[in-house]
């Protein structure tokens, strides 16, 4: 059975969706990802959908779910590389993907994740310490 790989990169998890998602695959991705976040204690999840040309309402909901679930586990989700046609479709379907952060490409997505986490850590830790770790 096909499986979408989840890569670990420091404190983040990286998911690149290279195939068109069918419902079963998406559901598996959802549960795998949540387990992985729990296991690794990741602080951010980055989902690259630049190769996805079709997103239906089910997929939109799965993405929203992933964002909300990881949020509960104290990790932020960023969706990157959405194609214009996909964005238009989601809007026309009335799914603005609340709770999901988006960025134009992986680089920007990483930046966004870092800044989000820095912001959260800044509340509890000393900012300088964080920067020295970086």
């Amino acid at each position: 059975m096909e499986k979408i790989p989840i890569l670990r990169m420091g404190r983040f998890l990286l998911v690149t969706i290279q195939v068109d998602l069918y419902d079963r695959l998406a559901e598996n991705l959802e549960s795998d990802l949540v387990h992985m976040v729990r296991k690794t204690g990741a602080r951010g999840v980055l989902i690259d959908i630049s190769a996805v040309s079709i997103i239906d309402s089910f997929m939109g909901r799965i993405l929203g779910n992933i964002a909300m679930m990881t949020k509960v586990l104290d990790a932020e989700t960023v969706v990157v590389g959405m194609q214009p046609a996909v964005a238009i479709t989601l809007i026309e379907l009335g799914l603005p993907l609340k709770g999901v952060h988006s960025a134009l490409n992986v680089e920007r997505g990483m930046e966004l994740l870092r800044s989000k986490i820095a912001l959260q850590d800044g509340e509890s830790q000393d900012d300088d310490i964080y920067h020295s770790i970086e």
Binding site: M82, P84, V86, A87, I88, I91, P96, H101, S102, L112
Partner: peptide, 12 residues
């Protein structure tokens, strides 16, 4: 509003 939401989805 639709246009704005779509640009946000794109990450801008």
């Amino acid at each position: 509003i639709k246009t704005v939401s779509a640009t946000r989805l794109m990450g801008a």
